[in-house]
């Protein structure tokens, strides 16, 4: 990594660690979602084990969406975004690095927390590992897709809800293949590798489409 990229990465990571402990809030929200589900569907452990991967994925999706609206907004409000546009660095890369830092600060803690929460859902060790692995591969895609929504709603004062509405349809494929591959590892006859590789491909696609689209949106937003 060249110097500027490292500087940006460190700055974003520092900011998210120092401001409000966004990682902690995300994990708490994740915990809250997972806790609420049994109250809805009943404490049937077999049922919970069956839908466990889905619950964890939906929890992770919601927790990721929750923190995304500040991804560019904070920088826009204090004028930093204007200067970033003029910095002479490729904006797509800037966004990719910001997403990476954001994922490490908010997405990775979710992945780390997932095995623990899987215990509540009566998942066996194999599925626990499978869910965690799919989350590790899939949550970056959620952040990258979410970056598009974040840059589109950057100028809106209350863009958080709209962001979720815009991003969720785009995130459906990630959710489908994330849950499918986790399920495949547990009971279905489908091999684990097939959906898992598609999930990896989706993340790679998101790593291209996300930064390109949100760079375009951010350039227009400076107007």
């Amino acid at each position: 990594m060249t110097g500027w990229a490292m500087a940006l990465f460190q700055r974003d990571l520092r900011l998210s660690v120092r401001i409000g402990g966004s990682a902690l809030v995300g994990v708490l929200f994740f915990l809250a979602v997972v806790t609420v589900i049994p109250f809805g569907v009943g404490p049937d452990l077999n049922l919970l084990a069956r839908i466990g991967p889905a619950i964890l994925w939906i929890g992770a999706l919601l927790a990721t969406l929750l923190g995304l609206d500040r991804l560019f907004q904070a920088d826009r409000e204090d004028g930093t975004l204007d200067l970033m546009l003029m910095a002479g660095r490729p904006l797509e890369l800037v966004i990719l690095i910001k997403c990476l830092a954001h994922w490490i600060a908010t997405g990775l803690p979710l992945v780390v927390a997932a095995p623990l929460l899987a215990i509540f859902l009566n998942l066996d060790p194999v599925s626990m590992g499978a869910v965690t692995l799919t989350l590790l591969v899939g949550t970056p895609a959620l952040t990258l897709i979410g970056a598009i929504g974040a840059s589109l709603t950057v100028s809106l004062r209350r863009g958080g809800l709209l962001l979720a509405v815009l991003v969720i349809p785009l995130a459906i494929p990630v959710l489908i293949f994330g849950v499918s591959s986790a399920d495949a590892a547990i009971h279905d006859p489908v091999p684990f590798v097939t959906p898992f590789l598609i999930l990896c491909a989706l993340t790679l696609i998101a790593a291209v489409v996300g930064p390109v689209a949100s760079a375009a949106a951010l350039r227009f937003s400076a107007d």
């Binding site: 589109l152 349809p169 785009l170 459906i172 494929p173 489908i176 689209a213 949106a217 227009f220």
Partner: peptide
């Protein structure tokens, strides 16, 4: 921008 991202995504959504 969102429309075009959606257009890229629609085949992927359909496939998934």
């Amino acid at each position: 921008i969102l429309t075009l991202v959606g257009a890229l995504n629609l085949p992927i959504i359909k496939f998934s």
